[in-house]
Amino acid sequence: MGHSQADHRKTYWKIFVWLFVLTVLEVGVVYIPMGKGTLIAILCGMAVVKAAMVGLWYMHLNDETAGLKWTVAIPMALPGFYAAVLIADAAWRYLR
């Protein structure tokens, strides 16, 4: 049974609260003393969660077919893969 638009609107507001809380945490965590690598990992993790929330609920990818979801997810994941390769390369040069 499908949800009413009123139900959807409640979900949208819940996502909004999560996005707000994560933004506050992102700004707050920058001022906490910790290793640069740890901080960058935390920041990237929170950014990816926020971006996924926008994509899944506000852009309604959650409601799309598996075909459309994968068509979007694979190209979106590629830059992340390239970034991981670059980070691994930089780490290798730094550590050797």
């Binding site: 992102e26 700004v27 950014a47 971006a51 926008v54 994509g55 852009m59």
Partner: peptide, 21 residues
């Protein structure tokens, strides 16, 4: 879709350009 994408990209730009120390 277009407007949320603009928001989504800003989330990443904000993190990488402004927050990374």
């Amino acid at each position: 879709l277009f407007w949320h994408f603009v928001d989504l990209i800003w989330i990443l730009v904000f993190t990488f350009i402004y927050l990374v120390p």
